[in-house]
């Protein structure tokens, strides 16, 4: 249930995907609420279930706490996208907003998590945590893009921690912190150097255990790197969201 408190809105969306036994994917759980509405849409591939996150309200605003939980069982193929960018905005309530993403993929399952950008608007304060638990043999494509400020404005305060665990062991754990009040130097030459769009794509495939793609630069401020496990990361900085998406898409395409 959506609960509006003096502190803001709490909302949770849940998705469960299971192999339907006929070569397709069923969605026994598909529950959204309030600002987190979910729609099943037509899938590109026959065996895949596709879900869109549809923003029914603006947000998250200060004080809001959103949670999206998705899991893909053995043999299930789940693709999650979003209809539009998520915009973190300042709210009436005091304090920051939270956005938690909890993803789980079983052995032989696949999750493609490809939402639109997160835009950190001036004056907003948002703490995002994305935790992904993968069983050995799981497949994952996970994209996140952060845009610091709407066109021409200062960014809000954004912290985003992304943790991926494979078989209970840490595979990737990184936190981005930027905007007014973030620890010093976040916009300097070691971290973002004035770029206003940053993004990561993590691709986990069991076959990378045998052979993982080699590290390579993708222009000045982007790279594809193998992680310490059957996974690669594409990390990119760009001047704006469009150029960032192009970089990430091109890198993904090279992985086949």
């Amino acid at each position: 249930m959506t609960t509006a408190t003096t502190g803001g809105v709490r909302a949770t969306a849940r998705i469960s995907a299971r192999a339907d036994g006929r070569g397709g994917t069923a969605l026994p759980v598909l529950e959204g609420e309030g600002p987190l509405a979910l729609r099943r849409t037509r899938a590109a591939a026959g065996d895949e279930a596709r879900v869109m996150l549809v923003g029914a309200m603006s947000g998250p605003l200060g004080g809001d706490h959103f949670t999206v939980a998705a899991e893909a069982g053995a043999g299930a193929r789940l693709h999650v996208g979003s209809a539009a960018a998520t915009i973190a905005l300042p709210g009436q309530a005091k304090g920051g907003a939270r956005y938690d993403v909890r993803l789980e993929v079983a052995a032989g399952g696949e999750l493609r998590w490809l939402p639109e950008q997160l835009i950190s608007a001036a004056g907003s304060e948002l703490y995002v945590t994305s935790r992904i638990e993968l069983a050995p043999g799981a497949r994952l494509v996970f994209r996140e893009e952060q845009v610091l400020g709407r066109a021409g404005e200062e960014p809000g305060r954004l912290t985003s921690r992304l943790t991926v665990r494979l078989g209970g062991r840490p595979l990737y754990d990184q936190e981005v912190a930027c905007g007014p009040g973030a620890p010093g130097g976040w916009d300097g030459p070691a971290v973002l150097a004035g770029h206003r769009a940053l993004g990561q794509v993590i691709v986990v495939r069991p076959e990378f255990e045998e052979r993982v793609p080699e590290a390579r630069l993708l222009g000045e401020c982007a790279a594809l790197t193998p992680l310490a496990g059957p996974a690669v990361l594409v990390t990119a900085l760009a001047g704006d969201a469009l150029r960032l998406r192009r970089l990430l898409d091109e890198a993904l395409a090279t992985l086949g």
Partner: peptide
Amino acid sequence: GVDVLPAASAPLLEIGAEGHAG
């Protein structure tokens, strides 16, 4: 456990290191 240890990232240090290595 180790998950509560800091994980602050510096994208340009990581990307720059890959370029420098070549």
